[in-house]
């Protein structure tokens, strides 16, 4: 069976849990920016968590189904409609052959995930269906969905009952003010003590240049650097380093002005200093931040980062249990 794309929305890509193992060539992991939401969507329709789903930014697509399917929408609150009739988010529902799935206006969050029973079955590329647009890999011809595309979908073996839903306390969509926990490190030593303080004191806002590669923030005080002689090969600006590797979640601040947090389509390295990285437990939250959303960065230790990671794992276990 297939699903016809009548309208792709603003930016809809096919994503699964990613393409690890090629970062040393500059090919990033990609995959859903809010992995917990993508996993939940798959579980709701009876799929493996790693099946490919659709990730839509701000606006949903309009899709015409060729065969019956069970679907679920998670992540951002982007209310789904079947032939114009509204359905619940975080809840499995049926779409019959010939019916059209569309979406209302975004209420909160930034990225909605649509899972279809059986999964979206575009060809795998280096072991994943995730779309990496910059490198033209995965998805359909390595690009976002376009009107007229036909999405191959497997028919789900045992689609669950309509109405199965995830309890509200297990859903996560950020509010208007978000705290992102950061482990200071990497080139933190280049900052003055005052800059190290103001980075965590100030409120930052999501800038318009925020996408799958990275989220840019503005509004905080500029960061000052300890005076030093620039090492050979770095370049003369105090925010320049000899080009090195960038971790996922690492925070670079070119010129000391606008922090950029690298995400799933991260560049693998570069020549701007990094002051630390957002901890793994908080990465999903970033993908749900809208432009102008207010954020504070909160300094944590490795111990706290690992405790938060454990808490996230426990949350995933509760989701699995709830939908088993």
């Amino acid at each position: 069976m297939g699903i016809k794309v009548n309208h792709p929305g603003l930016l809809t890509t096919i994503q699964d849990l990613g393409r690890p193992g090629y970062f040393h060539l500059g090919i990033p992991i990609s995959g859903a920016m809010d992995r917990m939401a993508a996993r939940a969507a798959n579980l709701l329709v009876g799929n493996e968590e790693s099946e490919a789903v659709l990730e839509s930014v701000f606006l949903g697509p309009q899709l015409e189904f060729e065969a019956d399917a069970t679907v679920a929408v998670t992540g951002a609150t982007l209310p789904p409609r079947v032939d114009g009739e509204e359905r619940e988010c975080w809840t499995a529902f049926r779409v019959k052959a010939g019916q059209t799935l569309s979406f209302g206006y975004l209420q909160e969050g930034a990225r909605a995930y649509l899972a279809v029973s059986g999964g979206i079955r575009t060809p795998q590329y280096l072991g994943s269906r995730s779309t990496y647009v910059i490198g033209a890999q995965g998805g359909i011809e390595g690009r976002p969905l376009a009107a007229g595309d036909m999405l191959p979908a497997a028919s789900g073996a045992n689609p669950p009952a309509e109405g199965r839903h995830l309890p509200e306390e297990l859903r996560r969509v950020p509010g208007t003010h978000t705290e992102l926990r950061v482990l200071p490190g990497l080139y933190w030593r280049l900052l003055t003590e005052g800059a190290g303080r103001s980075f965590f004191e100030d409120t930052w806002k999501v800038a318009p240049e925020a996408d799958r590669m990275g989220y840019r923030f503005r509004g905080g005080r500029p960061l000052a650097f300890e005076p030093r002689e620039q090492p050979f090969g770095a370049g003369s600006d105090p925010s320049n380093i000899v080009d090195g590797c960038y971790p996922y979640g690492s925070i670079q601040v070119p010129g000391g002005t606008e922090p950029i947090v690298l995400h799933r389509d991260a560049v693998s390295g570069g020549g701007y200093f990094t002051l630390g990285a957002v901890i793994s437990a908080d990465m999903d939250l970033i993908g749900q931040l809208q432009p102008n959303a207010e954020v504070r960065f909160v300094s944590v230790t490795m111990e706290e980062a690992l405790a938060a990671r454990k808490e996230r794992r426990a949350q995933l276990a509760r989701i699995r249990e709830s939908l088993a």
Binding site: L183, G185, W188, F232, I279, S280
Partner: peptide
């Protein structure tokens, strides 16, 4: 050596470039 969040270790052999 430095941690990059809880999933990475970054090692700077030297702060300046050389072969």
């Amino acid at each position: 050596y430095t941690f990059g969040g809880d999933e990475h270790i970054f090692v700077e052999m030297d702060d300046e470039m050389s072969l």
